[in-house]
Amino acid sequence: MSNQTQAAWSKPPLIKSPVLRYLVVAGVLVYIVTAVLSFGINPARIARGLGRAGEIFGAFLRPDFISRGPQIWEGVIESIAMTVGATAVGVLISIPLSLGAASNISPLPVYLLCRAFLVTIRSLHVVVLAILFVIMLGFGPFAGALTLVLNSVGFIGKLLSEEIENIDDESLEAVRATGATWSQVVVFSVWPQVVTRVIGISIYRMDINFRQSTVIGLVGAGGIGAVLDTAMGRYDYNTAAGILIVIIGLVLGGEYLSSAIRRRLT
């Protein structure tokens, strides 16, 4: 390597100052070490757990759908019922809400109010929502369905209001210029431009709701997750494996169906 020749070339480093470069590397290393130490990894406990790991993986080879068959079936039906009900109610609530949360068609106070509401419910994790509803309403699918409704409203409201804000301004003006009222503007200009997206988002949300319905059962909000939780509590790994396989199958089926329908829409 002749550094004397002017023609030498090497790739310029990402961080120019060498001091800063080494400080960044050192900082990252220190962080990794402290964090890993804080995990309190207990090799003895894990070594004992590995036996159980074998048991769990073995259970996946011999999944048991039969001995708890009625409960699994019940759980699946419950999850689907929660999904359907929550999606329908969620869509109905979020349509007016997203009109309100679109800055191009709503007055400022309404806009701010709707936006604030959407941000608040979006910030609550679905499991936290589920815990709150279970405490208020008791165990079961009703708490789960309400959880999913609120979660759906946050999701659909955000996507749909952004969709409305992105519609063509000129067509809005054109309809307004005819002397149309606010509701006429919504019906003749806003709705036709977003209707396919509303259907698309709703179907997508249905898919997500089903996924969520499998997990909120862990905190008592009904559905297949509750059945899984019971099986795990009994250390009945064969049934648990069976339930997991059912969940994976249904989630995949739902995803396939949802994307197939959405593809046909466009």
Binding site: M1, A7, A8, W9, S10
Partner: peptide
């Protein structure tokens, strides 16, 4: 590692 022979680098330049 972007290490090319010196003559190649010169030729490229």
């Amino acid at each position: 590692r972007r290490q090319f022979p010196q003559d190649v680098v010169e030729n490229a330049l």
